[in-house]
Write a protein that binds this DNA or RNA. Structure first.
Lengths: 358, 358
DNA sequence: TTGTCGAATGTGTGCGCACACAAAATGAAA
DNA sequence: TTTCATTTTGTGTGCGCACACATTCGACAA
């Protein structure tokens, strides 16, 4: 049988109230008594019964999540992870409010951040897509002693509780390694940002650094890395035109690395025949990408596991807030290499989320 | 606020005792009353408060785990996962007894199985390495209404609660795909079982089937697949000799697929120079393998994630026993492709096991 | 009508803990 | 010494549920 407060109290010759005060550091305990009780607790190996504790607290913990539009498949997956965590933690009195920003509008992000701060949540989960506004928000939370779990985009030197996501630099390295597999001695590879641009998005910069660095280390090959930012990724005509220009400029192009989940946009915009000799590496198991992976148009996808990011973000907040556990500040998720043959096992959600807390 | 039994009772005009009887199907409730209470429960969206329920049950759930020697790195990792699950679920009154078998002795397995049955556990976790003895054990548990979670080795048509592990067939396919990357038009590949043999181990058979099937589907290549069982994998001299024989026989050998976690045994036994033009694919992130991966001697490892198997096995039993959740009968873990560049992210255990149940 | 027996229903207690409140001890001032 | 404020310690209640036990009801026979 586990040791209870009552057992400690008996052995120490005090009441349960006193033991309670010692455990919670409520003060008003004679120093000598406190010391003694602490000794007995260690001796008997007391561990708080989280079940009973949670029940007695009878408190609601509100977590606010600042993420992005649900109609983007990537963010939708992330939100699903959060919902799963919500289910898993509801018994502990956790409620989650999600706020959905706009990927192309930092101002909306800042506005939502203000709303969240006004609502005084117990914990915050944030994807700080915009570096400046993100840092500011995290700072404000820190000032109010609200723990913050960061996902998706790592913010250096932040005062957050933890970061959960990938090592962007290394994901660039992996992408390079994958492109390198079938590559000739001399070739050109394209790094393509289908994104508003790396100006305010550090992870794109990191990916490029990792990508380029890999090609400088390999021996016996001479790879020319070119990079391109293409902001209006929904304009298929323009994207098609630009890509054909690049192809013409670089007839030895053998690989394309799309730095986010939008590889499918490229494949949608440009005629199939141009890809026949190209290796394509992209990110994320969103359905249009999976479709292209299965029909051999995309060769590799790197899984960022957004749903796990959302799930673990919440779980870590709960671990901190309720279970009062140590939370490790940087939790890099694996860089899953996904090909046609192992794709299905990553998309089944039944496994990745254990239905159990602690 | 969540709906409580008390709320249901009030609204239905009965006592909490009656509601309790309805919830637990204890009988002795007038049919009309039962129906009414059920209706009110649905109306108000009642959900059992697992925290309070667990506390009130005040029951110890004993889980027995039948696994294998701890001094093998693979099984050691699996045991670590079980220990982690033990920590995570101790608050729910779960205790775990581990029984360690011998990989080369089915009789010990059977003996331990008997011991476990005698101890009348509430749930069983088993790695049925030996098909016959495994099926028998699962059968016996079923007869005694003890739920069984199977890990590591899938047992077809078993009456177990669930299987958690890899799809062996598909892992063979992936291995073939990985060997195929750098492969010439015409070549020989070796499938090597460093194991007592596939006689009683279905997963080895499945892996070979998957492996061979891949090479029959690819076009434009002519790959010769040879397979070899080598039981005395600890006899370095013999292993070296046999491997050199194979090399001599097949000068066009370009790839080796070691079907379990013992790829490092081959590299230990044979001189390095013979591997220079060989692609090696193995299983599992055990430290001698990782070492060889980092020094580029092993090219790919497929991660079977034994620790996650152990962890999820326990978690699923808990989900079934305590949380009374539906458990999906087949839970294939991803076939992680591990190379030098993403290896580290798989070996960090901080992430894969969320510290939270439900 | 009363008594009986089984079914139906209600009540009370404890699980281990958090916290409010009551009680006792201490110590300083009168 | 008494008084009173302050610190220290003890007690009781509730969190939501499971379950044992107490009570009431209803049908039927005597």
């Amino acid at each position: 049988m586990r040791v209870r407060i009552k057992d400690i109290a008996e052995r120490a010759g005090v009441s349960t109230g006193t033991v309670d005060r010692v455990i919670h550091n409520r003060g008003n305990v004679a120093p000598r008594v406190k010391e003694h009780v602490e000794k007995v607790m260690i001796e008997m190996g007391y561990k708080r019964n989280i079940i009973a504790s949670t029940l007695a607290y009878n408190k609601v913990h509100r977590i606010a999540a600042l993420i992005f539009e649900q109609n983007d498949p990537y963010w939708h997956q992330l939100y699903q992870g959060i919902e799963r965590a919500q289910e898993a933690t509801q018994h502990y009195g956790v409620t989650i409010d999600a706020f959905f920003g706009d990927q192309s509008d930092p101002e909306i992000f800042a506005q939502l951040a203000r709303e969240i701060l006004d609502s005084r949540p117990d914990g915050v989960l944030v994807a700080p897509l915009f570096l400046k506004q993100g840092i500011d928000f995290i700072q404000q939370c820190h000032k109010r002693s609200i723990p913050v779990a960061i996902i998706n985009t790592q913010v250096p030197k932040s005062k957050a509780l933890c970061y959960i996501g990938q090592d962007s630099y290394q994901s660039g390295v992996i992408a390079a390694r994958l492109l390198n597999f079938g590559m000739k001695r001399k070739a050109t590879v394209l790094l393509l940002n289908l994104d508003p641009g790396p100006a305010n998005a550090q992870h794109l910069v990191d990916k490029e650094r990792g990508f380029r660095s890999y090609f400088t280390t390999i021996e016996g090959k001479c790879i020319n890395v070119i990079s391109e930012n293409f902001e209006h990724f929904n304009d298929r005509k323009a994207l098609n035109q630009r890509f054909l220009e690049i192809l013409e400029e670089h007839p030895d192009l053998t690989g394309v690395f799309v730095t986010n989940s939008r590889a499918y946009k490229l494949l949608d915009a440009v005629e199939q025949k141009y890809f026949e000799n190209l290796v394509i590496v992209g990110f994320d198991l969103v359905s249009p990408n999976i479709h292209n992976l299965k029909s051999n148009k995309i060769n590799f996808l790197i899984n960022q596991n957004p749903s796990l990011q959302g799930y673990l973000g919440v779980i870590n907040l709960v671990n901190h807030l309720i279970l009062r556990q140590e939370v490790s500040p940087i939790q890099y998720l694996p860089l899953d290499i996904v090909v046609r043959e192992n794709c299905d096992y990553y998309t089944r959600s039944s496994v990745s989320f254990p239905s159990v807390v602690f």
